[in-house]
Design a protein around this nucleic acid. Sequence first.
DNA 1: CGAGATGTTGACGACCCTCAAGTGCAGTGG
DNA 2: CCACTGCACTTGAGGGTCGTCAACATCTCG
Lengths: 237, 237
Amino acid sequence: MQANNTSAVMCRNCALYQTARVLGLETPDCSSLNRIVLRNHPVRKNEVLYHEGETFRYLYLIHSGSCISNATMLGNSRVMGFYLPGEIAGIENIGQNTCNHTTYALEKGSICQLDFSSLGEALSKDELINVQKYLLGSAAHHARQLQWERSLTGMQTAEQRIAAFLVNIASRLDTRGLPARQFRLPMSREAIADYLGLAMETVIRTLKNLQSRNLIDIKAKNIEIIDESSLSALFVY
Amino acid sequence: MQANNTSAVMCRNCALYQTARVLGLETPDCSSLNRIVLRNHPVRKNEVLYHEGETFRYLYLIHSGSCISNATMLGNSRVMGFYLPGEIAGIENIGQNTCNHTTYALEKGSICQLDFSSLGEALSKDELINVQKYLLGSAAHHARQLQWERSLTGMQTAEQRIAAFLVNIASRLDTRGLPARQFRLPMSREAIADYLGLAMETVIRTLKNLQSRNLIDIKAKNIEIIDESSLSALFVY
DNA sequence: CGAGATGTTGACGACCCTCAAGTGCAGTGG
DNA sequence: CCACTGCACTTGAGGGTCGTCAACATCTCG
């Protein structure tokens, strides 16, 4: 059995399971889905799912582990976002030919790969309508998530941004039925800093400060949210 | 004829026109589209399209003018985004019952209203597949836009954020075939400040500074981008 | 024309970025 | 098992950016 520090979603909460349900296929080992889905593919740490500029074809449903996506801006790289268990990486590439981020695993895990470009051929019209409807809902959900992230990233103080970031991660884990009080922050401090537009040192100092006020307990990558309401109160002003 | 300070998209570039094309209906006055679309509805300044908490039903395609959307956080309001001509307001509500922003017009203009909830009944299966595919592409495009906005909002200096904001607006206008060198910023300085996580005074001073360096020329809400490459160089470091 | 909203300017101080030095930890090879 | 190497992380000092406050200017619209 796998160690508990990398969390996996239960099938009921996995984005892929929802997709399967939409297809009218409740059983996990149905054959018609297998034509377009690669199930539970293991990924190593730092393994790339898709490269910036590559032809877009697949959606990646994170089953366990987590991913980070980067975009290069004239040589320099910027962190664009993180994908947690149950979330869909690559959905923002729909409607264009190429991927515009590089996405890779932050830790050992497993993903399901869905051949988006073959949906039309592999499914009946009714099935396609349902799957499209589901993906449209997922894309809209992703947009709401991004809107919320945008507003938190734009907050004024480092403390607000970090508090909002932590609450955001916790709530996303909670949505998928994963422990949201105590979990592992899979990304480096540098990645958090880049993502939030802060200096790495500020991230560290702010985390330590939140810890000294007993709002969180953080040791290396392991974090426990002790006082979520006070943490939220920092940015819901 | 309307004055030139509020810009309208040419029909070829309007998001609604694309939708119409997807439906296989090239002519603007076709009857089957009329069942679910309210065309070119005029809106007054400050007129609300949809309220936070209201039941979600319609998508709004901005034909001319522009909109702002706000979300309340415990009484306080935060600017969540702006919608320019040719863009679709409300698309992020798909997949949930209620709207989570309040969106209203920043200036006099006109919009088309699409009854999203009746799509399934009003269209044939083939039509529905095409419309869904189109909307899925739009939602993904919106997500890419938001991802980019998130990364610009997270930039460190006020100058980077403002430069990126201006270039972003210009490029969105350009996409729809509208003048992108000289245009009107329809929102207040305060709204820009809130949106970018800055103080209003900083927005004003930074704009003035960019003007003194001859990168832009700004007078009240009218802006001309004089040196776009230098402006872009400020944040593509 | 007047009143309220919106925008502008200046002074000051806090916050956070930069730079630099040092610590801890993970992975590798002996 | 342990030393070694490299990378992530931590801590401290100093200075610049930007937020706050307050006064004033300008714009908008009845």
